[in-house]
Nucleic acid binder design. Structure first.
Length: 802
DNA sequence: AGCACGCCGACT
DNA sequence: GTCGGCGTGCTC
């Protein structure tokens, strides 16, 4: 029997199956999807069996055998293998990358170099001997000191030791030892009678066991509470009255208890949407629904009902949310409705916790998964519904290889299982809405709020005007008044700072120099907590200079508007306010996010101040004011989606106000209030924005009218970076039709990161059947030639930002 | 990717 | 003469 294996080596020449002989004893266990360890070249690597045959073209003297089967059950289903093939083609990645993407990281291998002693320890040089006292194989890293490495090198040469790479298994199943009472009562009675009367403790123990037939107990519990000591337990095991078993333990990622909830009364609109979806489910038809519903229109209740329908059909459901570690409330709603049937999957879980959740799905112990992007690969085998909430979010697109979009994967799986996909959003991606308009997706609209609360009032304040009338503070008069009013009424406030591209930097007021990172072409950010300057791209740190590095002036100080700056400003203007600040600094710790939100929910603060991360999912009844400090920072990004992103963001933050009985108010501060993205966000209706933005996309040939591909090239040498980027342009130009537009090469918006200069080309096309093949060819040239010359190139189909 | 093989300059 | 630089080529 021959197994075709994709090996865990991401490199161009080995991105294909390799044939391996299957050892006899594994024949009944090896299947497509099995995870194996195989000899490859001069070392062992992990691999995935993608198919099993009887034939091979490999000469039998060249063929090696699988050395270990790593799991009793295959970890990948046939569907996943198929999906990986598709993804490899779609995103132009290595097949191994696609396969790995479908598994929790615990099932990916780690490799460790070890040093193995081949001779008598006493034969070794004295400095090495000490490491081999217990084992003949020890980690290589023990030798990583200058002097030892030299000795080691010599020892390798004289074949006294050898260096081996071993595959480390990381997926640890957590288990606990328990005492299990024999399941047969008559057997216990028999043992009880047979036992001599002198064994008083054992007799008592068996009597107790007879009342707990087949049950499992912690040894500690038996000893402390039932007074069956460890030695008696041991005796019972010898008698066969019980045995010790390793019980698998799931690490429990939930901290809170579930309070069950029940289905809510649906509005007419919700009912219409739900009916359309369940109809397709009953017909077993694939269909993509775009559920366009304003904030508060009850999209979630539609999801919950549709999921219930899938469960009633005996099927499973996958729900994607942008990043649920940020929106615990969303998860809670699913858990409240479906209880123990729900698995969660997000970046806040440890590797082990993710693995446990994954296994629950694989074994069919749960039927619903609520998770971030990677949860789209849930190892279910009978999916009845797939949902992407906030489908416009860019977090659904993976930013590094494999650059898949969860939306595309969802639609693929929908086709595979012949089931519907729901894309839900208040501000759909332009692409999605355009598809819905064309009838590719089925549009479902929710126009009314589920509870009859009014929409918040939205006011846009012109900050230029404020400046002209002498207000130099970062709070406009309107916002300051509104804040004061809420503080008096003991209502809550959310202040949103769109920090991207506009944080605190250090500027010399004499010569205008801004302190830049030495490795990246970007201003460094001032961090008050550590009194340091940090580069947000490479993480480099510097002390805050006391004099200007250029002109030695002492008038150098930090500038700009970071959350920390605003926080201290708030304390100055509103000394009585209690503020919770949420940004990368205050939420780095595990669970910090949830804790801060809980604190705010419990009214321990008046103002929640934060960046992007507070835009989502906040739902507290006492929030009646949302302030956007500066709406236009995201508007000025050099990206054709800047307006769309700004609109989405403003709509989303506005949705945080007045979700319950109290009337909400939103104040947006802007230096460019006449921009359509801001004006139309104020109106709170999507269609006018859609129409306006579509006109612009059409005029400049951008999506959804054209597709785009972004190719980035970087090199340590500016000239070479530019040179290879123009080679890209040339190659594409020669091999594609003259219908394509190629923009560039241009310097990337951050022209240098980690000392590498970056150039990019943007390809715009409508219909280009050759495209994938041409790009594949280009990648081949890169991987076989350019890579050696220090070039890094990435190809991103449908990039989320440029 | 990672590693061995193999062919030319600066050391004992 | 040997050690070691990294170009080249292979991995079932």
């Amino acid at each position: 029997m021959i197994a075709q294996v994709i090996v865990d080596v991401a490199a161009y020449p080995v991105d294909r199956p390799f044939d391996y002989e299957v050892p006899k004893q594994m024949e009944s266990l090896i299947e497509p999807g099995s995870r194996v360890k195989v000899p490859f070249g001069h070392r062992d690597v992990l691999g995935f069996v993608i198919s099993v045959t009887e034939e091979t073209e490999i000469a039998s003297n060249k063929m090696k055998s699988i050395s270990t089967l790593l799991d009793l059950e295959p970890v990948l289903t046939e569907e996943m293998l198929e999906m990986a093939k598709w993804m490899t083609k779609q995103t132009l990645c290595y097949e191994i990358d696609a396969l790995q993407a479908m598994l929790p990281s615990a099932l990916r291998a780690k490799y460790e170099k070890q040093v193995e002693c081949l001779v008598e320890v006493s034969m070794l040089p004295p400095s090495l001997q000490a490491h081999f006292t217990k084992k003949m194989r020890v980690p290589y890293k023990l030798f990583e000191t200058e002097a030892l490495l030299l000795e080691l090198k010599k020892a390798v040469k004289s074949k006294q030791v050898q260096i081996v790479t071993v595959v480390k298994q990381q997926g640890r199943i957590k288990s606990i030892r328990k005492f299990e009472v024999h399941a047969d009562l008559t057997f216990l009675q028999q043992k009880h009678e047979e036992l001599s009367n002198r064994a008083r403790k054992q007799k008592q123990a068996i009597e107790w066991c007879m009342e707990h037939v087949g049950e499992r107990f912690l040894p500690q519990y038996l000893a402390d509470e039932i007074f069956i000591s460890a030695s008696v337990q041991k005796a019972l095991v010898e008698l066969g009255v019980g045995k010790f078993v390793e019980e698998e333990l799931y690490r429990d990622p939930f901290t809170q208890e579930i309070t069950p909830s029940y289905a809510l009364q649906l509005t007419d609109e919700q009912q219409v949407a739900l009916d359309a979806i369940t109809e397709k489910m009953n017909e077993q038809q694939p269909e993509t629904f775009l559920l366009h519903g304003i904030t508060g229109s009850g999209k979630t209740e539609v999801y919950l009902r549709a999921i219930q329908h899938a469960l009633d059909q005996g099927k499973e459901a996958v729900v994607l949310v942008p990043e649920i570690s940020l929106t615990p409330m969303m998860t809670e709603r699913f858990r409240a409705r479906f209880g123990e049937l729900v698995a969660v999957m997000h970046s806040g879980l440890s590797q082990g916790e993710k693995y446990d959740e994954w296994r629950k799905m694989q074994r069919g112990e749960v039927k619903v998964v609520v998770g971030a992007r990677s949860a789209i690969f849930a190892p279910f085998t009978n999916i009845g519904l797939l949902i992407l909430d906030e489908e416009h979010e860019t977090t659904y697109k993976q930013e590094d290889t494999p650059r898949y979009h969860a939306r595309d994967v969802a639609i693929w799986r929908g086709m595979h299982y012949q089931c519907p996909v729901i894309l839900g959003s208040a501000t759909p991606a332009l692409e999605s809405f355009a598809r819905a308009q064309k009838g590719v997706y089925h549009l479902l609209t929710l126009k009314q709020r589920a509870k009859t609360q009014a929409l918040p009032t939205v006011q846009v304040v012109d900050m230029r005007e404020e400046l002209h009338t002498g207000n130099r503070s970062m709070f406009s008069r309107a916002l300051a008044d509104a804040i004061r009013e809420r503080l008096e009424k003991k209502e809550q406030i959310v202040l949103f700072l769109n920090r991207r591209g506009f944080s605190s930097f250090v500027l010399c007021r004499d010569c205008g120099t801004v302190v830049q990172c030495d490795n990246c072409d970007i201003s460094m950010t001032y961090h008050r907590s550590s009194e340091k300057l940090k580069c947000h791209y490479c993480g480099d740190e510097k002390p805050v200079p006391t004099e200007c590095p250029e002109c030695q002036s002492e008038h150098i100080r930090f500038f700009g508007t970071g959350t920390q700056k605003i926080e201290s400003e708030i304390y100055k203007v509103f000394p009585e306010a209690r503020v919770i600040r949420m940004d990368v600094d205050t939420t780095r710790q595990k669970g910090a996010h949830e804790r801060l939100l809980n604190d705010f929910g419990e009214g321990k603060a008046d103002i929640l101040l934060g960046t992007q991360m507070i835009a989502k999912g906040l739902d507290f009844p006492r929030i009646t004011l949302v302030g956007v400090m500066s709406a236009d920072t995201s508007l000025r990004l050099p990206d054709f989606r800047a307006a769309e992103k700004t609109y989405q963001l403003l709509t989303q933050v506005s949705g945080r106000a007045g979700r319950h009985e109290l009337q909400g108010e939103v104040i947006i501060q802007s230096y460019e209030p006449e921009h359509y993205a801001i004006e139309l966000a104020k109106e709170q209706i999507f269609e006018p924005f859609y129409e306006q933005e579509m006109r612009i996309r059409h005029r400049f040939s951008y999506p959804p009218y054209y597709y785009v591909v972004l190719i980035q090239v970087s090199h340590e040498d500016v000239m070479l970076a530019a040179e290879y980027a123009s080679l890209v342009h040339e190659y594409i130009g020669q091999h594609l039709s003259n219908q394509v537009q190629i923009i560039g090469p241009t310097a990337a918006s951050i022209s240098r990161i980690q000392n590498r200069y970056r150039y990019q080309c943007l390809i715009k096309y409508k219909r280009e059947p050759q495209l994938h093949d041409v790009l594949k060819q280009l990648i081949k040239i890169y991987r076989t030639d350019w890579m050696k010359k220090g070039v890094l190139m990435t190809v991103d189909l449908d990039p989320t930002s440029i």
